[in-house]
Simulated assay, not measured.
Amino acid sequence: MTPDADLLVIGGGPVGLAVAIEGRLAGLSVIVVEPRSTPVDKACGEGLMPGAVAALGRLGVHPDGHVLSGIRYLRGPRVADHLFATSPGLGVRRTVLHAAIAQRAAELGVVVVPGRGGAVEQDADAVWCAGIRGRWLLACDGLHSTVRRQVDLNVDRRGAGRRFGVRRHFRVEPWTDFVEVHWGRSVEAYVTPVADDVVGVALLGPAHHDYDRTLDSFAALRRHLGGAETLGPARGAGPLHQQTRRRTAGRVRLVGDSSGYVDALTGEGVRVGLAQAHAAVATLDDDVARSNAAYEKAWTAATRDYRVLTAGLLAAASSPLRRGIVPLAAAAPGLYRAVVERLAR
């Protein structure tokens, strides 16, 4: 039986569509299964590191947004700034980013069908899901991936590291071109300018904290926002920490958040997801075992800095060392610069 497509992509968020674009650029036929209409929104910080901007440009995607000059850490009167060394980042509303990637995918002939991933079946030659048969299935269905559970690659971390993110937009002129990270007692506030008159504020921390009350605890941030109008509903995501046994199971590959996630703390999730999308397609080979080994190796290389540095910072943020993170960054600008640039590549 002839497959319906070379690549069956479950999940049409930014990473799923990036996989689809990579497939079409490689000359493969692609079907994406996604239940939501375009544009798809998601709770996230919305700051693209310079490396993510470059990766999108390679795919032919150039979203509108607000130029980001660097990263700023703040805790009370302590401030640590770092300007990106080579090129700027970009603050982009998630809906704008998704619409731009979807437009590029459509230009390249990617087929998107409404539906959800369900049971997964495969043999030596093909894989079935959502009533569609593909040579390969690439699961891009997010933190709580259905496909990941179907192929038994999930690691249950119930009760461990349960941090969540909640994001709102405010109608206010940005007061800086930096992504600001305000460090509170147990919550970080990520502030990202995404347009000339819109700022996104994402709060990352334990479950069940009250958004407005927590925001009020960041006095300087609250003063900047003043009585600014909120735009749309608050959006949440989590728990953020997800682990996987492997990223491959026969002809199934996990890509993006479905392949494992440490935390949004260092803000480079899109860059890492785009790198995984490229690797997932570039390593495809008729020899499934060899191809999967190549993807596992490429996935490890693409995510190593993110996993190591984010895990280390998260461990410090969850310990008595938390209060010293911003003072250390301010007192050791070389170290702070090295970490930011490593993640911004």
Rank of each mutant, 00 (worst) to 15 (best):
D123P: 06
D125Y: 04
W128Q: 05
W128A: 10
C129N: 13
A130Q: 11
G131D: 07
I132H: 07
I132W: 13
R133K: 13
R133N: 12
R133I: 11
G134S: 12
W136K: 08
L137V: 08
L137F: 13
L138Q: 06
A139N: 06
C140Q: 01
C140F: 14
L143M: 10
L143V: 14
H144W: 08
T146H: 11
R148Q: 06
R149S: 07
R149I: 02
Q150W: 13
V151Q: 03
L153R: 07
L153C: 02
R157V: 08
A160S: 08
A160W: 02
G161H: 01
R162S: 01
R162E: 15
R163Q: 12
F164W: 12
F164T: 07
G165C: 05
G165H: 05
V166N: 10
R167Q: 01
R168Q: 06
H169D: 07
F170G: 03
R171T: 01
E173F: 03
P174M: 05
W175M: 11
D177R: 15
F178P: 03
F178Q: 09
F178A: 05
V179A: 06
E180P: 02
E180W: 00
E180L: 05
V181S: 01
V181F: 06
H182A: 06
W183N: 07
G184S: 01
S186K: 00
E188N: 10
E188V: 01
P193H: 02
V194E: 05
A195L: 06
A195R: 09
D196I: 00
D196R: 08
D197G: 12
D197A: 11
V198N: 03
V198M: 01
V201D: 10
A202C: 14
L203W: 09
L204K: 11
L204P: 03
L204H: 01
P206V: 09
P206S: 06
A207C: 04
H208R: 08
D210C: 00
Y211L: 06
Y211T: 06
D212E: 14
R213E: 15
T214I: 01
T214H: 05
D216N: 09
F218C: 10
A219D: 03
A220P: 02
R223V: 09
H224R: 15
L225H: 08
G226E: 15
A228K: 02
A228H: 08
E229P: 13
L231C: 03
G232H: 07
G232D: 02
G232Y: 03
G232P: 14
P233G: 13
P233W: 03
A237V: 09
A237W: 05
L240P: 04
Q243D: 14
Q243Y: 12
Q243P: 00
Q243R: 15
R245H: 07
R246D: 15
R246I: 13
T248R: 11
G250E: 07
R251H: 04
R251W: 07
R251P: 02
R251D: 00
L254T: 12
V255E: 04
V255R: 05
V255A: 10
G256E: 01
G256S: 05
G260T: 09
Y261L: 12
V262L: 10
D263M: 10
A264H: 01
L265M: 15
L265H: 14
